[in-house]
């Protein structure tokens, strides 16, 4: 059986992996053999191990000093909120597509349709049909013609009329 001979330049990039036990079996053995015979690589390995022990020991001790006693108390209300949001998202997901499309279309119609200042037609029509109205005054403006009439029940009303003087529907 022939043994592979590893040189320092081959071993150096593998030393981290050796300490971390991340090398494959055969390579691991080659590095171990090399380090056993090489004082320089062996010293590097010892330094890596010392660093690992120092960092590990102090890091864990530091983490224990973080106060987590109130963690769950602060966390639970956030979970309740998250549950509510999740339920809402699920509800949205189960809403039929046609219903969503309909809602979007209705919103679009409402917001995109042109807005015209329509006269109070229903009032005008209603008042025009009443017999007991007294004409007070006619007003001509750029926007149209209006009449001021006196109604027994409804008091003084402003009514839009056509060019011929008829009430607009």
């Amino acid at each position: 059986m022939s043994e592979r001979v590893m040189r320092c330049e081959d071993a150096a990039p593998l030393l981290d992996g050796f300490v971390d036990a991340e090398l494959e079996g055969a390579t691991l053995i080659d590095v171990a053999r090399h380090a056993a015979a090489c004082t320089s690589c062996d010293a590097t390995l010892q330094e890596l191990i010392a660093l690992h022990e120092t960092l590990g020991g102090h890091g864990r001790a530091d983490a224990d000093s973080v106060d987590l006693s109130g963690l769950w108390r602060s966390l639970e209300p956030q979970l309740v909120q998250a549950d509510a949001r999740r339920a809402w998202r699920r509800r949205l997901r189960t809403t039929p597509v046609w219903a969503s499309a309909l809602a979007i279309a209705a919103s679009a119609l409402f917001f995109l349709s042109p807005r015209t200042a329509a006269p109070p037609q229903s009032v005008a029509t209603q008042v025009a049909r009443r017999p007991n109205q007294a004409f007070i005054e006619r007003i001509d403006s750029e926007g149209g013609r209006f009449e001021l009439r006196r109604d027994r029940k409804n008091g003084t009303m402003l009514i839009m009329v056509s060019a011929t003087g008829d009430d607009l529907p």
């Binding site: 890091g59 530091d62 000093s65 973080v66 106060d67 987590l68 966390l75």
Partner: peptide, 27 residues
């Protein structure tokens, strides 16, 4: 907490990160 403290080197910040992590994980 160990990761957060190692990253931020501040206990209060680390504690906040732990809370945020679990809140985000749950969401």
């Amino acid at each position: 907490a160990a990761l957060a403290l190692g990253m931020l080197r501040n206990r209060e910040d680390a504690s906040d990160i732990v809370q945020e992590t679990f809140a985000k994980a749950y969401t």
